[in-house]
Simulated assay, not measured.
Amino acid sequence: MRQIVLDTETTGFNPKLGNRIVEIGCVELHNRMLTGNNLHFYLNPDRESEEGALAVHGLTTEFLSDKPRFHEVVEEFREYIRGAELIIHNAPFDLAFLNHEFKMMNLPPFDGHYGSVIDTLVQAKEMRPGKRNSLDALCDHFGISNAHRKLHGALLDAELLADVYLAMTRGQNSLSMDVEVEATSGGVHLEHVALADVLVLSASADEVAAHEDLLNGLDKAVKGNCLWRAAAA
């Protein structure tokens, strides 16, 4: 199954007031694995960002002035998301802006280009009723590091949301190691290798430390010892 974790940044908070998209970030999952086939655009909205929105993403008019406009990237974007299941945090917000952009270009509604939508905000509210369920709050809950997130960014937020979604639906806070390296038109290419030909490499000190950090994050998520700790014991 092909899923696209999608996020946007905008000049304001209401497309009906003429606000536009300034950034699109997409992260691809195939059968719940990160593929590395991501898509990212900065866009020139031909207008200023509202003060509140600018404080969120920090994308100034000067920075965006030489970036492509939405109509210049829409065909690549349409082809990329075609038929996929979208994963979005607070989906009505992003979908409203994308439908607005498509309408301005006299294109069929954006709703008709993808397969379905999973709203992780709705999922989080069902799992954690009465609690804060922003992306930052969910990263903290699942032990996903977002220390490098000083401002909102569509691609960065999509990458964090991919980890959050996988944690919410499978209890693991990251699948960054599960990157599909080789694919064919029929899917992932698997090659059988004789056990005698397998080269075993020991983990480095840095890798051992990173693994320990991962286990600590899992312990935090389950509020106790994760299954990996129990297996080791």
Rank of each mutant, 00 (worst) to 15 (best):
P68I: 00
T10L: 06
H141C: 00
L107E: 07
V22E: 01
R229G: 10
D157T: 10
A194M: 12
V164T: 05
L218G: 05
N38P: 09
I21K: 00
F41G: 01
R32L: 15
L121Q: 03
Y42R: 04
L175F: 11
I87P: 09
K16V: 14
T60G: 05
M104G: 07
L107T: 00
Y80N: 08
E9I: 00
L199D: 15
N31M: 06
N44F: 07
F77M: 08
S116R: 12
A124S: 10
I21M: 05
V181W: 12
P68M: 01
P108W: 00
V74R: 02
L135Y: 00
A154M: 05
F102H: 04
F77W: 05
E72H: 15
A210M: 10
S65Q: 07
H71T: 08
D46A: 09
A137N: 05
H152I: 01
F142I: 02
M105V: 04
E191I: 12
D163V: 03
V208M: 14
D111E: 14
H100R: 08
L54H: 08
L156A: 09
T10K: 10
R149I: 00
W228I: 15
E72W: 09
R170D: 10
E180N: 12
F70H: 02
N133T: 06
T35C: 10
N133M: 00
G25M: 00
D178Q: 12
E48V: 11
K125Q: 11
T10H: 11
V73Q: 11
P108D: 04
V179A: 09
V164A: 07
G12P: 08
H71M: 04
A230H: 15
D197E: 14
T8E: 03
D157L: 06
R170K: 13
L107S: 02
L43N: 05
L190G: 10
M105D: 07
T184W: 06
R78C: 13
L54M: 13
R128Q: 08
E207T: 13
N225F: 12
D119K: 03
V193G: 07
R47Q: 14
E28N: 08
V208I: 15
K150V: 11
K16I: 11
F142W: 09
E9S: 11
I24P: 04
A232W: 14
N90Q: 09
G36R: 07
L135Q: 02
L6W: 07
S185D: 15
A124L: 00
E85V: 10
E182V: 13
L54Q: 07
F97A: 01
R78I: 12
E212A: 14
M1Q: 15
H89D: 06
P45F: 01
L135D: 00
F13W: 02
V73M: 09
D178K: 11
G171K: 07
E9T: 04
P108G: 04
R47Y: 08
I88K: 05
A203V: 09
